[in-house]
Design a protein around this nucleic acid. Structure first.
Lengths: 236, 236
DNA sequence: CGAATAGTGTCTCTTAGACACTATGTC
DNA sequence: GACATAGTGTCTAAGAGACACTATTCG
């Protein structure tokens, strides 16, 4: 950026920068997002994405990880990726706030930790929240929508889907991740073939998982590959 | 975001939000970017991306369009797309500044307009700037690099390439856009077939362009389609 | 004419996806 | 046995890209 003629930020009204985090997880085969219930105005009683102010000594990503931990009790997940900035003048009725959106994946969300903001944290199905335009306060509907789009793209081009799974998982677990995030039904056989053909996507552990209803599946762990090339295209 | 225990932004040190704009254009078959020469510290004499403070009454995109006009004399282009936010605490030595990056495409960059900051604006080849890590001040090397990546993806999935061209253009003009942005050589025949097969990418004007060395090409204009599906994949 | 660029067609290889079939567990 | 899920294979259609060939201009 360039230096304006007069370089005095105090000439501008107070302005804050926050981060908002869209934490995705999968429960019962459905894609869910972590939200907090707002106890104060504005939007009291509404849901909102976890987030908060960026502190002077931390960068944006660090702020996102810290806020996430404070509000959901999670340790900062591996995948915490920025997807956009939002700065409409009136997006927060209290003051001018520019927020930077991050999205994250966790296999399981721990029980809320008492004594912190996290007490009010829970997960809700993404589909439900997006179906209703004002289920979320502020412009969080748009932010969630953008994050979902971003996550869907990520599943096409990267191996992040394994982050939704436990350390050891069956191919069908992975398929359910894709089905939940993309909101589609995938062919079981084709999916299996494709995943196994992609180099470094998953690695066999040699274990099987019993106790289920059908043939016990072989278990895999995440492989070293980060990107899927050619992309695993989402059906249109 | 949530409301912290004490909601007082003045508790935090001054913080500013700016926008930086990466304006791509193509000259002599090479991808170039608009930069300004810095006349003041820090980074005096270095190059930097155009940009500036977000004003209280405008949103981020508006700020980007305004700064672009002020510093390059361009009217705000059709494609002005956000690609990331940058907020490391020390990314600007003067104070804490969070900046939001936008990228834009223009067919031709007008001559700099005197009397404004634009007097110092010019274009430089992207390849040259990226080859040298400190040709740009601040973290603008990283920002430019991210913008380029973003633009490359955009060419795969959208029809923005037509925005680099004049109102009427030959298929080979469009091919040169892809070649410049992707830094590859594309097969002439295959490119032609492909573009014409994609519904709504280009529309015939009925005109031809004479005066060149070979067979005069038919001229087209941008079609109504915004996305290319399936994507036009970049060779790897 | 030859060089240069535009436009069209052909062939092959790869991939996506529909779908059939086999394997192995529970009830 | 029926049923459910896992794992493998086969076929077809579509797309990518190498490449040949024709068309049309200029010098």
């Amino acid at each position: 950026m360039t230096a304006p003629a007069e370089y005095d930020p105090r000439a501008f009204p107070p302005l804050a920068v926050t981060v908002d985090i869209v934490v995705f997880t999968i429960e019962d085969g459905a894609l869910k997002v972590a939200v907090i219930e707002r106890g104060e105005e504005p939007y009291r009683g509404s849901l909102a994405l976890p987030g908060g102010f960026v502190r002077p000594d931390e960068n944006l990503r660090e702020a996102a990880g810290r806020e996430l931990t404070e509000e959901t009790g999670l340790h900062s997940p591996e995948h915490l990726e920025q997807f956009g900035a939002y700065g409409d003048p009136d997006r927060d009725p209290r003051m001018r706030i520019v927020t930077v959106g991050y999205w994250a994946i966790v296999p399981d969300l721990p029980e809320p930790v008492g004594g912190t903001d996290a007490a009010a944290a829970r997960t809700v199905p993404v589909a439900d929240v997006l179906a209703e335009t004002d289920a979320l306060g502020f412009d969080h509907h748009e932010i969630l929508s953008d994050a979902l789009e971003y996550a869907r793209d990520a599943l096409e081009n990267t191996t992040v889907a394994t982050d939704f799974c436990d350390d050891e998982f069956a191919i069908s677990d992975l398929r359910k991740v894709y089905e939940a995030v993309w909101d589609v039904k995938l062919d079981q056989g084709n999916f299996q073939n494709k995943v196994l053909e992609i180099d470094g996507f998953v690695e066999p552990t040699g274990n099987r998982r019993g106790g289920g209803r059908g043939r016990p599946p072989e278990l895999f762990r995440a492989g070293p590959a980060a990107r899927i090339d050619p992309p695993f295209r989402r059906p249109r």
